[in-house]
Every structure is written in structure tokens, then in C-alpha cells.
């Protein structure tokens, strides 16, 4: 492009000084527009105080086998379930071929007796039922989403209904045997 500024160029020679000016004008305009528009778009992304949400610690010693708790993390419910022996066996026995989003139970837990998942249906974001005693747990003994009828198993994996993915496992770490930090 160096010779585009050459005043002796003619239209028949391909590029003229005017072409160069056009190019510079339009590129400046494009970059300028983008620079003005981006703040208007980005202001809708999570603000600093929302991003600064800390992690939470949960005491698990009060959760008996077969029951579960719901804790709030980043505005969303997290399900922590103290699974029974049968539930663990059931989750481990499922052949991967049967799963829509194939994951072994091992990949989804740090300690088999504790299942920690984000309690948000991967279909359209409802909170599935089954974490409280008496709520329907669906056909696979895990959770049942009332909105559009997705069934999750005892490993939080999608088994039936419209949801495409398993319940998300958040980042977490066991601090002691009965205490866990999420986030």
C-alpha cells in the first residue's frame, strides 16, 4: 500500500490517492464506531461487585445419609446430596452408552458419598425438584425438573426429557471430611 500515496498514479494504474483516503476514512470510522459501541454493550456484562462474589463454605456434618441440602452460591442453588450405598451403586452401574451426556460417576464426585451439583436444569434454568424429602425425584431417583419434565439420576446426569447436559459440577474442595468450600 506504500505507493498508494503516489500522486502520479492514475485510475488505470489501479490505486489512486483517493482510494487511500477512502480506505483510511472508512477504517477510522469502523474502529471509532466499534470503540463507541463496545462500552454500550459491555455495560450489560456482570459488574465488578457481581464478579467479586466470594466462595462459600458449607458444613456437612448435619446432613444425614439419604438427604440433601440446598445452598445459594452466585445467586444459584447448589445441591449437596449425601448419597446412600444403593444410590452410589446405581450411579456407578449405568453403562456410558445409555447416557445422553456420557460421564462416569467417578468423574462427577470427589467423595462417592457426596454429590455436589449446581441445582439448575440444563434445559432452561429451572430448579429441579427432589432435594427435599417428599419431592418427586423422577424416574431415576435423582431430580425431576417440573418445568419441562427432565429426569436426572443419582449422579445428576440427564436421563430423560429435553435437557441436553448433566447438572453442572461446580469447583469445590473438601476442607475437612465434613466441610466443603464451593467456588
Amino acid at each position: 500500500m506504500a505507493d498508494t500515496a503516489n500522486p502520479t498514479s492514475t485510475p488505470s494504474g489501479g490505486t489512486t490517492r483517493r482510494d487511500f483516503l477512502d480506505l483510511v476514512t472508512w477504517s477510522t470510522l469502523a474502529v471509532g464506531t466499534a470503540a463507541v459501541v463496545w462500552p454500550l454493550i459491555d455495560q450489560m456484562n456482570p459488574s465488578a461487585d457481581v464478579l467479586a462474589l466470594s466462595s462459600i463454605e458449607v458444613d456437612l456434618s448435619q446432613v444425614p445419609v439419604g438427604q440433601a441440602v440446598t445452598v445459594k452460591w452466585r445467586g444459584k442453588p447448589v445441591f449437596i446430596r449425601h448419597r446412600t450405598e444403593e444410590e452410589i451403586k446405581e450411579a456407578e452401574a449405568v453403562p456410558l452408552g445409555e447416557l445422553r451426556d456420557p460421564q462416569t460417576d467417578e468423574q462427577r464426585v470427589k467423595k462417592p458419598e457426596w454429590l455436589v451439583v449446581i441445582g439448575v436444569c440444563t434445559h432452561l434454568g429451572c430448579v429441579p425438584l427432589g432435594n427435599k424429602p417428599g419431592e418427586p425425584r423422577g424416574d431415576y431417583g435423582g431430580w425431576f425438573c417440573p418445568c419441562h419434565g427432565s429426569h436426572y439420576d443419582t449422579s445428576g446426569r440427564i436421563r430423560k426429557g429435553p435437557a441436553p447436559l448433566n447438572l453442572t459440577v461446580p469447583d469445590y474442595a473438601f476442607l475437612t471430611d465434613t466441610s466443603v468450600r464451593i467456588g
Binding site: 456482570p46 457481581v50 445467586g75
Partner: peptide
Amino acid sequence: TWLWGGFSVDNPTLNR
């Protein structure tokens, strides 16, 4: 996330 202005429907969502 951009529509919500966070990680769930919350105050920023209501405002916009």
C-alpha cells in the same frame, strides 16, 4: 450472562 448482568436473573436483570 450478558443478558442477566450476572450469573442468574437478579437486580441488574430487573433494572435493564
